[in-house]
Design a protein around this nucleic acid. Structure first.
Lengths: 224, 224
DNA sequence: CGACCATTTGATATGGATCAAGCGATGTGG
DNA sequence: CCACATCGCTTGATCCATATCAAATGGTCG
């Protein structure tokens, strides 16, 4: 009953490289993608999956009426596109110039048949994706200001490790429109909610792409 | 690019029982649940999972502000609660008196370590849950009337096999409020959209719990 | 039959979308 | 190095879909 699944941090504390990380490092080869370049398209065969070396990725689908829904952002270190289905459900693009490790799925699956820890890691990865998607579902049940607050906290958590100095300053690699399509609101609404949060001193907008969480507790309060 | 993931049928055509079905039949024991009885709660250890023998199940979470989000309905034959995570994320209740097969997860996992087809089935099951959840995400990006239409088509598909006579008459086991919490709208809105669909002759409301899809093509049109 | 709860229908309120204009940052060519 | 064009972001005004509040109707079970 005491539901505790409101926020998705997206980062499982990893002390040491997992069997999946090792397999990916062994099997994968590097490939660069330019800004807005497609990594794979929806409905393509999911023969390969990816690990972000540098840059950022958005996974999305364009609905029939033209609207776009971003299902996830992937940050350096994240693995994505590892679908248990035959084909990719979503498309993926580089948000900026980015570098990926490209991994052949079958190779990994064959290794997993022999290596139990790897099989367990694959299972855990899908579990994680499922968890992420379920959190996204909960997000879409909230008001616009809550969605923005949740998004900021999520990004803060996921980028915490590469911030040594100011732990509450987060760099947003994506545009307002990207954020809007992730939160299923308009970019105008994202803007308004950000200024509203700034007016209540919950955050500070250093530049458009750099935001300081001034009152993390207050933000967490509003998403409960 | 040609995104084809708008609708989720929830039913993989199964010619013969899968390895998972067989394992479940071997390991599981039967248990009855009364109306609205909790099968498991969010945050409980996910040591067991379930297969619906008869009756219907809702999987849901209650958000902090009291609203409820139903993540899925499970029908006879469906397996649910097989989380790759340590603990259940959602709660599950019987919608009516229902009978379940209760399966010990570890037992199945151990079998899967020896039996490749079973391991593949487990993987496929999680894939299916992920797919279902992603479809639900897309659903929440639509207008209220589209959501209702999608829901009706989905229920029509999922119950097709146990309708011999009128293939377009569907029995809804759940209340309007349940439907509303699944579609993330109010029950009033569900009512209104149903009467709207009836007025346009897309459906007929035989009774509140029995709906006839009179113009399936028209419904599919409006959800594209 | 009567009580109770679910459902439908109606009236009003409101959060966010839409339409539109201003502003700011970034880059380009003179 | 500056004028200017461009694109993304913010702010403002209005509109609309759905929520909310409220009442009427219907269905179910004692």
């Amino acid at each position: 009953m005491a539901t505790r699944n409101s926020l998705y941090s997206g980062r499982i504390d990893k002390k040491e490289p997992s069997a999946l990380d090792i397999a990916v490092g062994r099997i994968g080869f590097r490939k660069r993608f330019g800004i807005n370049e497609e990594i794979y398209g929806a409905n393509e065969r999911a023969d390969y999956f990816y690990k972000v070396v540098s840059g950022y990725v958005r996974s999305y689908t364009v609905v029939e009426d033209g609207r776009r829904l971003i299902a996830a952002f992937y940050l350096p270190g994240d693995i994505f596109g590892l679908e248990p289905t035959e084909r990719h459900l979503f498309s993926a693009e580089a948000i900026f110039d980015a570098e990926m490790l490209v991994i052949n799925r079958n190779e990994v699956m064959q290794s997993a048949a022999r290596e139990n820890t790897l099989a367990r890691d694959l299972w855990a990865h899908v579990a994680n994706e499922l968890h992420r998607t379920q959190s996204h579902l909960l997000l879409l049940n909230k008001s616009a200001s809550e969605r923005v607050a949740i998004f900021l906290l999520e990004m803060g958590d996921r980028t915490r490790h590469d911030r040594t100095r100011h732990r509450d300053e987060i760099g947003l690699p994506m545009s307002r429109q990207d954020i809007a399509d992730y939160l299923a609101v308009t970019s105008e609404t994202v803007s308004r909610m950000l200024t509203k949060l700034e007016n209540t001193s919950a955050i500070a907008l250093r530049t458009t792409r750099s935001i300081v969480l001034r009152d993390r507790a207050g933000l967490e309060q509003m998403v409960i």
